[in-house]
Amino acid sequence: MKKTLEVMGMVCPFPLVEAKEAIKELHTGDELEVQFDCTQGTESIPRWAVEDGHEVTAYDQIGEAAWTITIKKK
C-alpha cells in the first residue's frame, strides 16, 4: 500500500511532524510519499527516516523548490 502526504506550503518543521504522524498509521512494508516545498525538509526528512530505521526508496526534486520522498516503513 502507498499513501501520499501532500504538505506543500507547510513551513519547517511541520512537514516532518506530519510525516511522523502519517507513518504511524501504516503497516510494515507500506510506503509513504511526502511532497513538500520547505527547503530545510530536504535535510530533516531523510535524516529522520533513516535514523528511525525506515528505508528511503525514492527521493527527487520535482520542480523549483519542490521535492518528493518515498519512505518504506520498517
Binding site: 506550503g9 513551513v11 516545498d37 527547503t39 523549483e64 523548490a65
Partner: peptide
Amino acid sequence: AAKMSGEFRFRLPDLKT
C-alpha cells in the same frame, strides 16, 4: 544561492502561519 539551486519560489503561507 536559492535561484542557482532551484530552491527559489514565492510561497504564500496559510492564515495561521
